[in-house]
Amino acid sequence: MLKKKTAVLFVETDGTSTKRVQVPTLMVTHWKKILGSLVVLIAIAVFSVAYVVKQKTSEEYTLAYNKKIDLLNEEKRQLEKEGFNSQLTTDEMKKSFNSIDSTLERINKKMRTRGLKEIRMKNAGGPVENDDEDLVELSLFYKKQLKNLETKLDGMPFGVPHPGRITSPFGYRRNPFTNRGREMHGGVDLKGRVGDPVRATAKGKVAFAGYKGDYGYVVMVKHNNGFETRYAHLTRTRVKRGEAIEAGEIVGLLGSTGRSTGPHLHYEVTQHDKKLNPAKFFYF
Rank of each mutant, 00 (worst) to 15 (best):
K122C: 01
E74M: 03
N123H: 13
K122P: 02
K76W: 02
S96V: 03
E80R: 03
G125K: 11
N98G: 14
E118T: 05
S86K: 08
S99E: 14
R77I: 08
G126T: 05
K117H: 11
T113C: 00
K94F: 01
E118P: 10
E80W: 02
G115W: 00
S102L: 10
L71N: 11
T89D: 07
T103L: 09
D131K: 12
I119F: 12
I119S: 09
Q87R: 12
E105T: 12
E129V: 01
D131L: 07
G125Y: 07
D70E: 09
T103K: 14
P127S: 15
R120I: 14
E92P: 00
S99F: 07
T90D: 13
G126H: 13
L135E: 05
T89S: 08
D91A: 04
Q78D: 14
L104Y: 01
D70T: 06
D70A: 10
S99M: 05
S96A: 13
G83P: 00
I69H: 02
K122Y: 14
I119P: 02
Q87T: 08
I69N: 04
L116C: 01
G83V: 04
F84E: 08
T103S: 14
N130T: 13
N66Y: 01
D101P: 03
E82W: 09
S96Q: 12
L79F: 04
G115H: 01
N130H: 13
K110Y: 09
K117M: 06
G115R: 00
L71E: 15
S96E: 12
E92G: 01
E74F: 04
N108V: 06
G125Q: 10
N108L: 04
L88Y: 07
Y65C: 02
K67Q: 12
N108E: 07
R120K: 15
M111C: 03
K76R: 09
N85A: 10
M93E: 05
T90W: 01
D131P: 03
R77Y: 09
D132H: 06
P127K: 15
E92R: 10
T103R: 15
R77K: 14
K67N: 15
I107N: 13
R120F: 05
G125E: 13
K94G: 03
K117D: 15
E105G: 02
G115I: 00
E105I: 11
R114K: 13
L88Q: 10
K110H: 12
L116H: 03
L104S: 04
